[in-house]
Design a protein around this nucleic acid. Structure first.
Lengths: 165, 165
DNA sequence: TATTGTTATACTCTATAACTATA
DNA sequence: TATAGTTATAGAGTATAACAATA
């Protein structure tokens, strides 16, 4: 088989840096807004939004939260601890599995999300959607959603060298 | 004029979260590779790559580097200090403007970039480009490049409240 | 006075490893 | 033994404000 070239073409380079730059700038803008309007980090916002908006019960297990939100369990414990200290979530042992912890949004947590959303939307409008037509927005999501799925499914890099286990 | 709705449609939400998720996962993977293969942070890689690959002279002023790489001047000073301590760049007063500092890649810096590139490319292949056709890669770059330009041109959010100055 | 860059400082976030408790 | 979560700890990165030097 042919040895794979160890460089990227200019189209790939352009897509890579554009992606990283846009996401970096956007994250920076968004973190600033969340901090100013609601004293939340982006990770805290993610956790809170997932509980308040996505979960029918307002609850999720730590492990399920960790998937797709944060990269280490201790990191999630830290953020959940901050949210709990601020009265925005509560933690309790799961009824079915005593090892698990169920995190639940409080009313204050829901209120915090509501307080933060308008400014958040405004930042996204100004920074991201102002530069995209609706069709382009659709196209962007259609391109990136499968990439996310691919990356979530992919084993971490270290797995390659652990293959023989 | 009609009051702007304070929520996003599902297409916008999908694009937003897909963008943030993909970039977050990709940055995580890339930082790990850079750390393992070359003991570099992503910001250090950006600085080094910009000097070694983009600049004809291998030099740039601190201020010019700060644009588009890092968000505060002190942050760049910190990263440049680490790179200098590692022998990968040198700093010297600019000849034309004594206030400015010119940063220059060393041979060791170029060697470090060369050492890191193959693994970097491999990570991008596996995580990003494996999930995109060449046409999709092109489309992604075409969508995001104008967004980056828009965001770079846009004044920071605080400028809105400073408007009357 | 404005600009360039550094320093001091304080803080947030993250990850690793050791540990506890339950399955 | 494996899994869920916490804790202790240590390190990396960032931003703000005060500062010095040059334009």
């Amino acid at each position: 088989m042919p040895k794979p070239s160890s460089s990227l073409d200019s189209v790939q380079l352009g897509a890579y840096f554009a992606l990283m730059d846009v996401a970096g700038l956007l994250r920076h803008a968004v973190e600033q807004q969340l901090r100013e309007d609601g004293d939340l980090s982006y990770v805290q916002f993610q956790v809170l939004a997932r509980l308040a908006l996505d979960s029918p019960t307002g609850s999720e297990r730590m492990t399920d939260l960790a998937d797709g939100v944060v990269y280490s369990r201790s990191g999630l414990t830290y953020q959940a601890g901050l949210l709990e200290k601020a009265g925005l979530v509560e933690r309790a042992p799961s009824p079915d599995d005593e090892r698990s912890v169920t995190v639940t949004v409080t009313d204050a947590g829901r209120a915090r999300i509501d307080a933060v959303i308008p400014g958040h939307v405004e930042v996204l409008r100004q920074h991201l959607f102002a530069a995209l037509t609706p069709a382009q927005t659709q196209a962007l999501g259609d391109l990136l959603a499968p990439v996310r799925d691919h990356m979530r499914a992919a084993p971490p890099r270290s797995a390659a060298s652990r293959g023989r286990r």
